[in-house]
């Protein structure tokens, strides 16, 4: 007889079967994700000595990264741009998610979501590149405005700066923000709104006191899901950012592929991950506290 494991009469226990199945994907993730991430961490404590790598552990790279104004500025700017993109994206996304969830007929919701997701699945590179074409000195936007006589000379503040990066990224990550908020809104029991109205709350205060708090987990997910990839974005700064729009990913690439200073690149990568982690933890913590406060 079996020793009391929860198993459907086939000998092996449930846990053993689970481990057997998950072993391959887990091994893959360990070898190609955990090990490389560990290697990056290790590298960041080494230092580049011209062509060879000095493997004595040192904090030199971190000291340099945090004291050199160039690196500091890049890190800070990445954070600011990411924050701006996140805010713009999530604020713009909420009404869409709200509209689709509350005002679109149930049988047409899937189609709306499909429409919203399609652009996301088309080549990211092409989409970013198109913004360069649109916003450029001789781009679609400027030539159109010139042709219509609205402006006398091309606008220059819209390309090759941080603004352009924010616009482009906000566009690229829009579906990412809409989906989690939509899912959270969909989960809200519609009778809660009727209950709130029944108890004397108006439309706005119902939104404020019922809808928004219940949608908060979706908003937090949207914030994280936009913030995390944008902070490490490489393509957009290069194509539309100009010198003022460079971000940390560009410097990491430069360190690895151009300057051949892998340890410095590794340290910057670790710092980026650290920033991501801190922001993620703050939001997860806020969400938890918020949820607990409600219970």
């Amino acid at each position: 007889m079996n020793d009391g494991n929860r198993g459907p009469g086939f000998g092996r226990s449930e846990a053993a079967q689970g481990y057997l199945l998950v072993a391959t994907p887990l091994a893959y993730a360990l070898l190609l994700l955990a090990v490389p991430l560990g290697a990056i961490l290790l590298f960041s404590f080494w230092s580049q000595d011209y062509l060879t790598i000095d493997t004595t552990l040192t904090l030199k790279n971190y000291r340099e990264a945090l004291s050199d104004p160039l690196y500091r500025q890049l890190l800070l700017r990445s954070l600011m741009i990411s924050a701006a993109v996140t805010m713009a994206t999530v604020l713009a996304a909420f009404p869409i998610a709200y509209y689709v969830s509350f005002y679109v007929a149930p049988e047409r919701k899937a189609m709306w979501i499909f429409l919203i997701t399609i652009p996301f699945w088309t080549s990211y590179l092409i989409r970013v590149f198109l913004w360069k074409v649109i916003l450029g000195y001789n781009g679609v936007f400027n030539t159109t405005l010139l042709g219509l006589g609205i402006i006398d000379e091309p606008l220059t503040f819209i390309l090759y700066n941080a603004n352009a990066v924010v616009i482009t990224l906000a566009h690229a990550y829009a579906p990412f923000a809409i989906l989690p908020i939509f899912v959270a809104l969909e989960k809200i029991d519609r009778s809660l709104h009727e209950a709130s109205r029944d108890l004397g709350e108006g439309y706005l205060s119902t939104f404020w006191r019922v809808t928004l708090p219940l949608a908060m987990p979706g908003v937090v997910a949207a914030v994280l899901i936009v913030f995390i990839p944008t902070i490490g974005d490489y393509v957009t700064p290069v194509l539309v950012g100009g010198p003022d729009g460079r971000m940390i990913a560009n410097m990491i690439q430069t360190q690895f592929l151009r300057l051949n200073n892998a340890p410095m690149g590794a340290a910057l990568a670790v710092l980026t991950m650290a920033m991501v982690t801190v922001v993620a933890l703050v939001f997860v913590f806020l969400n938890r506290r918020y949820l607990r406060g409600r219970e």
Binding site: M1, N2, D3, G4, N5, R6, G7, P8, G9
Partner: peptide, 8 residues
Amino acid sequence: AGFEDLSA
């Protein structure tokens, strides 16, 4: 049915 083992 045989979907659960006996403990004893």
